[in-house]
Amino acid sequence: KYSDMIVAAIQAEKNRAGSSRQSIQKYIKSHYKVGENADSQIKLSIKRLVTTGVLKQTKGVGASGSFRLA
C-alpha cells in the first residue's frame, strides 16, 4: 500500500523539516517494486494522508513541498 510506503520513507529519512515528494519517490522506487504509475499514485496518496491528518505539510502547497508525520 502506497500510504504505508510513504510513512516508511518519511520515518527512514528522519529529517526535522520533513521529506520532499521527490525524496519520498526516490526511497519508494529503491526499496519497493512499484509499477510505472508510481509517481502519480504517490502524489495522490500524499494528498490523502494530509487530508486525513496522518501527514503534516511543512512547506509548499498540494503534493509539492515537504511533509512529516503528524
Rank of each mutant, 00 (worst) to 15 (best):
A38T: 04
A63M: 12
Q11S: 09
G60Y: 06
K14C: 15
F67Y: 13
Q22W: 08
Q11D: 04
L49S: 00
K29Q: 07
E13H: 08
T58H: 07
V61I: 11
A70Y: 09
M5Y: 07
S20V: 03
T58G: 07
K26G: 06
S20E: 03
N15F: 05
L69K: 03
I46L: 13
L44F: 06
V50Y: 03
Q41E: 13
K1C: 15
K56C: 15
R48Y: 14
D4F: 12
R48P: 01
A38K: 03
I28P: 02
Q11M: 14
D39A: 09
G60T: 08
S23I: 04
L49H: 01
G35W: 04
V7C: 11
D4Q: 10
S45G: 12
V61W: 11
G18C: 15
A63H: 11
L49E: 00
S20D: 06
L44H: 08
S23C: 10
R16V: 11
M5F: 05
R21S: 09
S20T: 14
G35K: 04
L69R: 02
K59C: 14
A70F: 06
E36W: 09
Q22P: 05
L49G: 00
I42T: 01
S40Y: 14
A9W: 02
K33S: 09
N37R: 07
I28D: 00
K33E: 12
D39Y: 09
R68N: 07
E36F: 09
D4E: 13
G60N: 07
G65I: 15
R16P: 15
K33I: 11
D4Y: 13
I28E: 15
A70I: 08
K43R: 11
H31P: 00
N37D: 14
G53Y: 02
T52Y: 07
I46S: 01
S64D: 14
S30Q: 11
V7S: 02
R21V: 15
K47N: 10
S45H: 14
K56P: 00
G35F: 04
K1E: 09
E36K: 15
L55R: 02
S66Y: 14
N15C: 13
H31N: 08
I10V: 13
S30F: 07
K56F: 12
R16I: 11
Q57H: 11
G62C: 07
A17G: 12
I46T: 01
G53F: 03
A9N: 00
R48L: 13
S3P: 15
K43T: 13
K29M: 09
A63Q: 11
D39R: 06
V54H: 05
G35Q: 05
A17H: 13
S66C: 14
S30T: 12
D4C: 15
K26R: 12
R68L: 13
S45Q: 13
A38Q: 04
Y2S: 02
S64C: 13
R68P: 03
K26V: 08
A63K: 12
L69H: 04
Q57Y: 15
M5W: 12
S45T: 15
I42G: 02
T51N: 11
G62T: 07
K29N: 05
K26A: 12
S40T: 12
A17Y: 13
K1T: 11
N15I: 04
K1A: 10
S30A: 12
T58Q: 07
S30N: 09
I42A: 00
K33A: 11
G62H: 06
S40L: 13
T51R: 14
A8H: 07
I24M: 01
S19Q: 03
Q57W: 15
V34A: 04
A12R: 04
V54R: 05
T58F: 09
V54Y: 04
R48S: 07
S19D: 01
L69C: 07
A38W: 06
S20M: 03
K47M: 13
N37I: 06
T51D: 14
I46Q: 00
E13L: 15
A8E: 10
S19V: 12
T51C: 14
A8D: 05
S45D: 08
I28K: 00
K47G: 06
S40I: 12
I10L: 07
K1P: 09
I24L: 02
L44P: 01
S23K: 05
I42E: 00
I42F: 05
R48W: 15
V54T: 04
Q11E: 08
R21Y: 15
I10N: 00
L49D: 00
Q41C: 15
K59R: 10
T58D: 09
G62W: 07
G65T: 13
Y27Q: 01
Y32K: 01
K59P: 08
D39K: 07
Y2K: 01
G60F: 06
A12Y: 07
I46H: 01
A63L: 11
G35Y: 05
T51Y: 10
F67I: 07
A38N: 03
E13R: 07
K14R: 10
Y32N: 02
A17T: 09
L49I: 00
V7T: 04
Y27F: 08
Q11L: 14
K14W: 06
K14V: 05
I24F: 04
K47A: 12
V50A: 02
M5S: 00
G35S: 07
K43N: 15
K33L: 10
D4I: 09
A8R: 07
G18Q: 04
F67M: 04
K43C: 13
N37F: 07
L49F: 02
D39L: 07
I28H: 01
S30G: 06
V61A: 10
Q25F: 08
A8Y: 05
A12I: 03
Q25V: 15
S3C: 15
V50K: 01
S23R: 06
F67G: 03
V7H: 03
V34M: 05
R68G: 07
R16T: 10
T52C: 15
K33F: 08
I28T: 00
R16N: 10
Q22R: 09
S3R: 10
R21A: 14
L55C: 02
S64K: 14
G62M: 05
T58C: 15
I10Y: 00
S40D: 12
I24Y: 00
R21M: 15
E36N: 12
L55Q: 02
K56A: 08
G65L: 14
D39F: 06
D4A: 11
Q25G: 09
K33D: 12
N37Q: 06
G18E: 04
A70P: 04
T52G: 06
T51A: 14
G18L: 03
A17M: 13
E13W: 05
S64P: 10
A38G: 04
K56V: 15
M5L: 05
L55M: 02
N37Y: 06
R68A: 12
V7F: 06
V50W: 03
H31V: 05
I10W: 00
G18R: 02
T58M: 12
S19C: 12
S30E: 13
Q57V: 14
V50T: 04
A9S: 02
Y2I: 10
T52A: 13
R16H: 10
A38I: 13
N37C: 08
K59A: 09
T52K: 11
Q11K: 13
R21I: 15
A70T: 07
G35N: 06
K29V: 07
M5H: 02
V7Q: 03
A70N: 08
K1R: 11
S20Y: 02
S45W: 15
F67V: 06
K29R: 07
N37S: 06
K43S: 13
I46E: 02
S3A: 13
M5T: 01
D39C: 14
E13Y: 09
A70S: 08
V7L: 12
K26C: 09
G62A: 06
K33V: 11
E13A: 09
K47S: 09
